[in-house]
Amino acid sequence: MIFPASVQLLHIPDGFLSLPISVVSWAITLVLLYFAVRNAQQVLDERLVPLAGIMAAFIFAGQMLNFPVAGGTSGHFIGATLAAIVLGPWVGLLAMTAVISLQALLFQDGGLVVMGANILIMGIVPTFVGYGLYQLLRNQSRGVMLVGTAVASWVSIEMAALITALLIGFSGTSAFNVAVPAMLGVHALVGIGEALITVAAISFIQRTRPQILAEGSVAGSGRWVVAGLVIALVVTLFAPLASASPDGLEWVAGEHGFLQTAKDAPYQILPDYTIPFLGESGFSTIVAGIVGVLLVMGITYLLGRLLQRHEPVTSNQ
C-alpha cells in the first residue's frame, strides 16, 4: 500500500514549538489567509471552493507519486511551487492550507496548535518565494522558463527548511548551529527531487494545456519575490522578540555563554558555516543561511537579465 502520510521533516508536531512562537506564526498566517481568501474570491467567486478543494486533493494525492532514486529511497514532491505556478499564489496558498490542515486533522502529520507555523512553512513561504522566482523568468524562452521553475522550487524548499530551523531554534528546541545547516543540507537534496518533478510537470502542462499557465498568473511579478522575502525577514526578526518568555531568550543567552564548551560539540564538523566577523554564534549561522538564500535569488535574477538580452521578450502577457 502506497501511503502519502510519510514522515517529512517540515511537518512540526505539537510540543516542539514554544507557545509565543506558535501564536506569532498563527498571526502571520491568519493575516495572509485573509488576503488569500479575499483575492481568490474576487477572481473566482463561488468557483473557488471546488477548484481549490480538488487542487488540494491533487497535491495530496500527488505526494503518493514517487520515483525510485537508489537503495530503497525515493524522491517525492511537496507541490507548493507547482500549485503556485499553475493556480497563482493565492489559490495555491489556500490549496496548501487545506492539505496541511487535513494532514494534521486526519493523520496527526503535523500538530494542531503549531498548524499556523506549518502553514507558514509549507504554504506561505514556498508559494510566495517559488511564485516570485518563477515570475522573474517566465516571459522568456521555454528553456529559461524551465530553469526558472527548477530554481524556484529548489529555493522555496530551502527557504521552508530555513524557516523551520529558525522556528525550532527560537523555541529553544534545537541549537541553531546544528538545526540550520542540517535542515538546509537535507533539503538541498529533497529540493533537487522537487525541482525535477516540478519542471517535468510544468513542461508537460505547457505542452498540453498552455492556457492554464497563462490563467494562473497574477499581475505584479516582482512584488511576489519581495513579499516572500519580507515574510522570511519578519519571521527572523520577530521570532526572538516573541520569545521574550524565559524560554527563548534565556536559551539564546545560554547559547552565547556556552561558546567556550561548544568547541566539543558535534557541529564543529561545519565550522565554516558562520560569518567570521559575527563570531561563531547561532545568530551568525542564521545570517549565513539568509545570505546564502539571497545569493541564490540574486544569481537567478541576474541570470534572467543576462539571458533576456539574447532572447527578446515576445509579448508582455
Binding site: L196, A200, F204, R209
Partner: peptide, 15 residues
C-alpha cells in the same frame, strides 16, 4: 524523474 513529473502534470490536468 521526467516520467514522474509528466505523471504529476497528467494528474494535474485531469484534476
Amino acid at each position: 524523474a521526467k516520467v514522474t513529473g509528466s505523471m504529476a502534470g497528467q494528474l494535474f490536468v485531469r484534476s
